[in-house]
């Protein structure tokens, strides 16, 4: 059943690209829907920022409660998960805002729309910087480095214990594998897109290839010198 499902998905993807390559008349209406994309992305980014701010306020409020026993453990677990959700939401908001600005500039969108997307980006940058300041509410008894410190990330890693490093290592390793795979798929996708639409994506393919080589070189050099 699983093999049949995989064959079916493969046939659909292959059929689509075959049709596109043979037909040669495929184009994504990116310019036609740029305004809608900008509005949707900005609204999403705004709501994610509000979600992040509400989450941070909730973490601070919960941290002020005096609890004991299992309730204290549950609060700690809740704060940790909420903090992770907030970090993800604020980062996504930042990426969406930057993408909105890019769309606005590339498609020469209406000036008010570009200004709104710029304001959204500044708001997202501020919100994405806030979680690190709230870390002390999630880890009240820890001597964590100041987010303004030089080499903050290295100091934060040093301040982590073996369990936290274990969690980070698992997460980062899966991200590393996923990034390599997705970038490879992006190169293939851009190649098909270039052939199908006649719009060269060669620059993007070169940039992604350089990124792939850089991250793999960085990883290999880090592990081979130990």
């Amino acid at each position: 059943m699983k093999v049949l499902k995989q064959l079916g998905i493969g046939a659909l993807i292959g059929g689509f690209f075959g049709y596109v390559l043979v037909g040669g008349s495929f184009t994504l209406p990116t310019y036609d829907i740029s305004t809608e994309l900008m509005v949707i992305f900005t609204i999403f980014a705004f709501f994610l920022c509000i979600f992040s701010l509400a989450g941070l306020t909730a973490i601070k409020k919960k941290a002020a409660q005096t609890l004991s026993g299992d309730e204290e453990d549950l609060r700690d677990e809740w704060s940790y998960k909420k903090y992770s959700d907030v970090s993800l939401a604020s980062t996504t908001a930042l990426v969406l805002s930057i993408a909105t600005v890019c769309i606005g500039i590339i498609t020469e969108a209406l000036i008010p729309l570009v200004i709104v997307s710029l304001v959204s980006t500044i708001f997202s940058v501020i919100v994405s910087l806030m979680p690190s300041k709230y870390m002390r509410y999630v880890y009240p008894d820890r001597n964590l480095p100041n987010p303004n410190d030089k080499n903050y990330m290295s100091k934060l890693l040093e301040a982590s214990d073996e369990g936290e490093r274990h969690i980070m290592l698992n997460g980062l390793y899966s991200v590393y594998n996923l990034t390599s795979l997705l970038l490879l798929l992006a190169i293939v996708l851009f190649m098909f897109y270039s052939v199908a639409t006649g719009e060269s994506q060669l620059f993007s393919i070169l940039v992604i290839s350089l990124i792939l080589i850089s991250i793999n070189t960085q990883y290999i050099f880090k592990i081979r010198s130990k």
């Binding site: 677990e77 940790y80 214990d161 369990g163 936290e164 274990h166 969690i167």
Partner: peptide
């Protein structure tokens, strides 16, 4: 002298 996450993992 460890985090709660470490105790939970162990």
């Amino acid at each position: 002298k460890v985090s709660r996450q470490t105790i939970s993992l162990i």
